[in-house]
Design a protein around this nucleic acid. Sequence first.
DNA 1: GTCTATACAGTGATAGAC
DNA 2: GTCTATCACTGTATAGAC
Lengths: 192, 192
Amino acid sequence: MARSYLERSDLVPQLAEIFRRYGYEGASIGVIAQETGAGRSSLYHFFPGGKEEMADAVLAQISDWFEVHIFAPLRERPAPQALVEMAAAVETYFRSGQRICLVGAFALDDVRSRFSGRIESYFARWGAALAECLQRAGWPEPEARQEAISILAAIQGGIVLTRASGNAEAFRSALATALARAGRAGTDATGE
Amino acid sequence: MARSYLERSDLVPQLAEIFRRYGYEGASIGVIAQETGAGRSSLYHFFPGGKEEMADAVLAQISDWFEVHIFAPLRERPAPQALVEMAAAVETYFRSGQRICLVGAFALDDVRSRFSGRIESYFARWGAALAECLQRAGWPEPEARQEAISILAAIQGGIVLTRASGNAEAFRSALATALARAGRAGTDATGE
DNA sequence: GTCTATACAGTGATAGAC
DNA sequence: GTCTATCACTGTATAGAC
């Protein structure tokens, strides 16, 4: 039962935090070895493809986590609560904007091209699940998609602002404002 | 009048695009020399502090540009038009989200700590100018600040989404939604 | 599966000739 | 002000002993 071998799956969450902290380029193999406590050889043993394979494994794990904890609930839970629950889950996961979204950070970075499939899919699935939920909450088709984009933008932008200012209120405020708007299902049109 | 000397100020805009493209870590001196066409020695001649001084000069130039073209108009132009003009300027500058905000990207990155002063000041001044403009447009104090944050988040998040999806509509939609909301000066309260 | 040793390109940075 | 040459160092990646 007590397994003393290091496994690939033990490493992935650590790698995620390291990439968050240092960025893709900044996270050198030396840094990774130091922070994980694993030797360089062990890292290459588990990830023969080197750093690129490590980052890919991290993105895959993040994708799985969001599928289970965010996307599926959006599709399956009753519409009004689903939004509140997503807000709570997102607030916890991103620590009110103090923990960055690795997928979003990669989207801004040069490495985007290497992981474009994963990055695209992450936001596309999140957007689709959210739009579907908003439709069930009463929004007509095109506006539901627009509101979904606004909420995702508020989350990603909220992280940027909170990281820039050191103030978690920015994240909370941006997210709350976007969700409050979405909560008014179709009450008003485009504004004005 | 034809001056054939290379000047520091000629280099800065090029450096900005290079940092945008490769990120801070990814933009090595070799890459910078190649892309600018300047020799390594010339680069160190203009920026004795190396890459850190280059990035600092870029951030300073961006800060100046925004002060003149975004922040000052927000303070000085009539309130309702000022928002429309900012939207147009931002849309052009960020090429509908296909050109990243270097300050926002740095805020997510590890290098944030090195340039925290510049990053903080950029968003603080933008937020203050925008909130002041919204107050003139009829929003009460606390809500004006909150709306300003939402708009900034929509811009930053819109860039992330557009870069992730390759679709400029995400940026436009997020920005339009946030601005439409702000345009309804104090018409409704927090929503719901 | 983890260690040490090592190959070899790329890194930031400097010195001195022109 | 720009060039070539060079520095010590860190980067990724691999090989072979254990």
